[in-house]
Amino acid sequence: MALLSKKDTSLILDPLADNNPITIQVLGICSALAITAELKASIVMALSVMFVLGMGNVVISLMRNIIPSKIRIIVQLVVVAALVIMVDQVLKAFAYELSKTLSVFVGLIITNCIIMGRFEAFALANGPWRSFLDGIGNSAGYGLILIIIGFFRELLGSGTLLGFKVLGDPIEKTGLYAIGYENNGFMLLSPMALIVVGLIIWVQRSRNKALIEEN
């Protein structure tokens, strides 16, 4: 027997493309704008959300039969908040500089609509294993978009990737800069993240016409 059945596989693969949380469900846009000026911050945010959503989905799923329905939203919030504080503490202890870059945004994971959305829509109705896969799948779809945006913003905005000067040195005028190329500082501002998301949505829907909503 394969490790993942066909249905399980689709739990992971669907959110990567045709049911992507950012480009199709339009959730989690706020953090996609806020922290994608650097590729490194995007990757860390993606991994943090993956941890919180994967674990959170399992916890909520395990408790789904005993959670009183009257206070289920509060229970969900407590679970997310506890997991987020743990991520925050671990980052502060082992990746201090990174935690300073992410400072406000780690706290904002709590308000990331994807997390509450998946708890409500999936984990409350499904078993732990499937919920875990759903969490990993959705956060991977979210992270994929974050990393694509981070890649273009850092490359075009600062001429670097993960801090390495891949396009040459803008001060010494080496590499691409020698022939008159300039960094586009506008890429570092959050509106450009929205425009990059828009471009991704455009490419995705023109390749798969079924995704285009009817008006």
């Binding site: 005993i66 009183p68 009257k70 206070i71 504080i85 502060k92």
Partner: peptide, 28 residues
Amino acid sequence: YTVIFAAVMVVIVGSLLAFFASSLSEKI
């Protein structure tokens, strides 16, 4: 049931977080 559930949850989550905070505080 709701009240008891809430109380137990707070105690469990609270002690878990306290454990995390105190074990990492030196490094932080």
